[in-house]
């Protein structure tokens, strides 16, 4: 009886803690969502309450009437192409680092790791100058290239770590079975590495999707601006359209949520790889 009470108290304690943790985590999401459904007047009256009359027309107002569908498309193209190219390049580089033995491999890998320490802000001005001299400011290529460069270090690091964990026997078996280097990558390493690739895809997409500084400086033209940058349109010097900012944030949030739901199994395996046998 005493033990049962102890177990019950422990369960209530654990679950109570977890419920509070979940509520704290979800509160900003709730606030963002309810704010997006309020008028400015209602928002001022009560920030936290559910809207009396949900203003769903904030969404068509942003996406269609104010023409932000263009920013959504820009963001999808921007994040999509950066993710695909970064993964492709990371896979090739990681494969070389993990499987081949070549002179300077360690040094090169250390140089790649150094890239992890470079912050976006610290290279903003040189990148701007570089793109300007190459006539790539306000171009899609100019927007994508630095973002890929910034993401590559992490991509190569993650995939190299994963590929190094692929048993050597598996690589040897594939070679004996007749795989060329490219076949070994395409038919063995990539399928085996799918969990890590999914994790990298979600992280890279999320990171690019939310990227603000580089696009703010590089893409000043409206037709190239991604969604994250377009939010500044609602921030005037003396006014701040909270409900429209929140609506844009919800629009930004949904694709990431869908991507995570689609890849969550692989993603979880990817981010916990090596943690358990």
């Amino acid at each position: 009886m005493r033990n049962q009470l102890k177990r019950l108290a422990s369960a209530i304690g654990t679950h109570g803690f977890l419920i509070i943790f979940v509520l704290i985590s979800l509160f900003p999401v709730y606030l963002m969502f309810v704010t997006s459904l309020k008028s400015q007047a209602e928002l001022i009256q009560n920030v936290f309450a559910l809207p009396h009359d949900a203003k769903w027309d904030n969404y068509p107002l942003i996406v269609i009437q104010r023409g932000y569908y263009r920013a959504v498309i820009n963001s999808l193209l921007f994040a999509g192409s950066v993710t695909i190219i970064t993964i492709a390049l990371s896979l090739l580089a990681a494969y070389a680092f993990a499987v081949f033995d070549f002179v300077g491999r360690q040094l090169l890998f250390v140089l790649v790791l150094v890239g992890l320490m470079v912050s976006e802000v610290s290279i903003l001005i040189p990148v701007y100058q570089l793109l300007k001299s190459a006539n790539l400011l306000n171009t899609f290529v100019g927007l994508v290239l630095p973002q890929i460069a910034l993401g590559l270090s992490f991509g190569i690091f993650l995939m190299t770590t994963f590929f190094r964990e692929v048993p050597k026997d598996l690589v040897d078996a594939a070679r004996l079975d007749g795989c060329t280097d490219l076949q070994l990558l395409m038919k063995v390493m990539i399928p085996v590495g799918l969990p890590a690739i999914s994790a990298l895809a979600v992280i890279e997409f999320l990171w690019t999707w939310n990227s603000f500084f580089l696009p703010l400086v590089i893409a000043t033209k409206q037709e190239l601006m991604p969604l994250a940058v377009s939010i500044i349109d609602f921030m005037g010097r003396f006014t701040f359209n909270y409900e429209l900012v929140a609506t844009t944030c919800v629009i930004m949030f949904v694709p990431i949520l869908i991507l995570y739901i689609l890849t969550q199994r692989s993603f979880r395996r990817g981010v916990t790889m090596g943690a358990v046998k």
Partner: peptide
């Protein structure tokens, strides 16, 4: 010669089966 050109087959201690392929595909891969 490269391993694939020697026409030798190897059985490994760790089995070295391709985890993403079923038995049929593992056996037919080469």
């Amino acid at each position: 010669l490269e391993p694939k050109e020697r026409n030798v087959a190897m059985v490994f201690q760790s089995y070295a089966l391709y985890p993403h392929m079923n038995v049929f595909n593992n056996q037919s891969f080469s």
